[in-house]
Write a protein that binds this DNA or RNA. Structure first.
Lengths: 296, 296
DNA sequence: TAATATGCATCGGAAAATTTGATGGTGGTT
DNA sequence: AACCACCATCAAATTTTCCGATGCATATTA
């Protein structure tokens, strides 16, 4: 019997048999069979030249020598497992899955850049996008998502946050609209028929808040749940739409983008919990999100 | 790749490849083949998720990570080999506790010598003496005692035995008793009033058995549970007591020791179980017991 | 440039080791 | 005595490791 053929699986079996005081129970705990455990202990008996466990009634008891060996072998096993523990996250070779909770704004602005980078640098990484819809914080707390991005502020303990970017509202009108040629005054803006985006709920965009604070009420001609098709809705009409500047950037030549009299600047932040805070992969991914945003 | 399947042979290969800077030379040194070494290094590459050795020209060089792993793995390998090395017991420095099951006879004859030696040679060793009282074998089996000494024979499997000494019965009478001057015949012995020791139970000493086999019945005048005070009970009376010769050796000048017509020779043996058989300390202690007995 | 040497990676088959499920033996309990 | 729990051992199936051959890459030499 060459003692070098002892593997760490055998040391794990030794530890388990000692802990359970039973070959059969150790086998169950390891998802193995009693006879495999018996064979392994027999190997160790030969390696250490000691019975290690002896029959006593219907059970088994460790020898004095076994107690010494279990203690030291346990230390060796723990040290080896620590040595084999991945040191840093290797994007190129990792197989992982991450869930990001956000909404249309992020999907239109940040996510395209992010996914492009990830496909190139971490091909084994799978990114799941789920809608937050004001549930973002709960999703994080429940572990349903790993990351949350949006125009929100979480001050409670248990959450980590990071500022990503600033934005403000701009107006979008048909390129042939006479209003397209100069900035809109507050009065003209308030008098112009509006397309208002509700984001699928009763969301009140911050420019509407600022407008009300200035004593103006919007002349709502159309409500839509998403800003996704806004250019197509506006072109050929006298409507004005109001969307974040980074969303409007992608609109084509059929519409014109004008400054908004109520720009209502807002921040987009990234949040996560302690569950993922120290994990090398998650740390890396948060860096990647910041990179993607920096490229906007 | 389950990291537990890594064995110490693999760690040895890792060390050798690093030391030789070559798969082929490591294989030669190990009496193996280059392809087996390559296969083993491949296993370790998967376990540690690192290339470990990379081609450079016609040779191979370790990665940074490999240098860390070789250092720690080398320590683990050395510690394991030391653990598998048979241990020697160091009496002078050991702290240990041993339980010896025996009865009055052994406590009067063997134990005084044994404990005197132990106090000198193994000061950290604690010896617990418990009475066996015909329960000796069960105490051994249940791990309540480590050693059993007595006039018994255990032939069952699971027990190890060793012969310690022989003894036989002698008669003890008052020094002034007229019978003290010559050996007793069987008839005179049987007719003389006897002190019989029952050892706290219904123990029938072997001289009584031999006496009955010879057609004689003892004339019992007194029964006592222990031979401890026999000289004091006999002095100034016409009683005869019958005890093992090695017990009688310690009696003072107030009594006379005579050969017994029914000497009923018996053996005193030492027994222990597989639980302690190979342990260096126990092996040493068994040797000490034999020494103590040899000095009787 | 071609030929040669060195040396790791990989292949398919042989050999060895491990796992599996069944069975036997031992000890304890009712 | 019957039954149960549990380790030891068996033979066959499965998996892993080793072996010798071959391929590929790099360096050296004529």
């Amino acid at each position: 019997m060459d003692v070098h053929s002892v593997d760490f699986a055998a040391l794990r079996v030794l530890r388990m048999v000692h802990a359970h005081g039973s070959f059969t129970r150790a086998a169950e705990a390891l998802g193995s069979t009693q006879s495999a455990v018996s064979y392994t202990i027999d190997r160790l008996r030969r390696a250490f030249d000691d019975p290690l466990f002896v029959r006593q009634g219907t059970g088994t008891v460790p020898t004095e020598r076994c107690l010494e060996i279990v203690a030291e072998a346990g230390r060796l096993l723990d040290k080896f497992l620590a040595l084999a523990e991945p040191r840093a996250f290797d994007p190129a070779h990792a197989e992982a899955e991450v869930t990001l909770s956000c909404n249309y704004y992020e999907r239109a602005t940040m996510v395209p850049h992010l996914i492009r980078n990830l496909r190139r640098t971490a091909p084994g990484l799978r990114l799941n996008i789920i809608a937050s819809s004001v549930q973002g914080k709960q999703q994080l707390s429940r572990g349903e998502s790993d990351l949350l991005v949006g125009p929100i502020r979480i001050k409670e303990s248990g959450f980590y946050g990071r500022h990503l970017l600033e934005d403000h509202y701009v107006c979008v009108v048909d390129a042939q609209n006479p209003l397209a040629n100069a900035p809109l005054s507050a009065e003209i803006f308030a008098a112009t028929p509006q397309v208002v985006v509700t984001y699928g709920g009763n969301w009140r965009s911050s420019y509407l808040v600022e407008m009300a604070e200035g004593g103006f009420a919007p002349r709502v001609a159309l409500e839509v749940p998403s800003p996704a098709n806004l250019p197509e809705l506006i072109m050929g009409t006298d409507l004005v739409g109001t969307v974040p500047r980074r969303v409007a950037q992608a609109y084509g030549p059929g519409v014109r983008v004008l400054p908004c009299p109520f720009p209502a600047a807002f921040a987009i932040d990234l949040y996560w919990t302690a569950r993922t805070h120290h994990a090398p992969m998650h740390r890396w991914l948060r860096g990647q999100i910041a990179l993607a945003v920096g490229a906007l």
